[in-house]
């Protein structure tokens, strides 16, 4: 029990938790800007969406496809970060806890 509260109060654990939510928060903000930005662009800047770029194809179509691709990329960035930076720390902290608990 002592070990557990040591862990909870440790700098390593606290920074792990705060980093996790910082990364989540920034990516969520990017998602909001992408999706709601797209909706607001359609609502308030219609001419931008309807300008024809390739033959009769308006900009709105590649933009819409871009929202889908970007949403997936944000998901991929999170996984990349979590696999590279989050998991190793989780593993080492969990092992430390195990080693200290007889």
């Amino acid at each position: 029990m002592q070990n557990n509260s040591d862990m909870l109060n440790s700098h390593a654990f606290k920074s792990l938790v705060s980093q996790r939510w910082w990364v989540s928060g920034i990516l969520l903000l990017a998602l909001f800007l992408t999706y709601y930005g797209f909706l607001l662009l359609i609502a308030y800047q219609r001419p931008v969406v309807t300008v024809q770029i390739w033959g009769k194809t308006p900009l709105g179509i590649p933009l819409g496809a871009g929202v889908i691709v970007l949403s997936w990329l944000l998901t991929a960035i999170y996984v990349f970060w979590a696999n590279r930076a989050y998991d190793p720390v989780v593993l080492s902290l969990a092992q430390r806890l195990k080693a200290e608990t007889p």
């Binding site: 609502a43 308030y44 969406v49 033959g55 009769k56 194809t57 308006p58």
Partner: peptide, 29 residues
């Protein structure tokens, strides 16, 4: 692009443009 052109030729450019769904931004959000 040829598919979109075919749609626009048959139904007008409006088929490729936003219609009523986002006419009220609060509704859309």
């Amino acid at each position: 692009i040829e598919l979109y052109a075919a749609v626009a030729n048959q139904y007008g450019q409006a088929a490729l443009e936003p219609g009523g769904l986002v006419s009220n931004p609060l509704d859309a959000i």
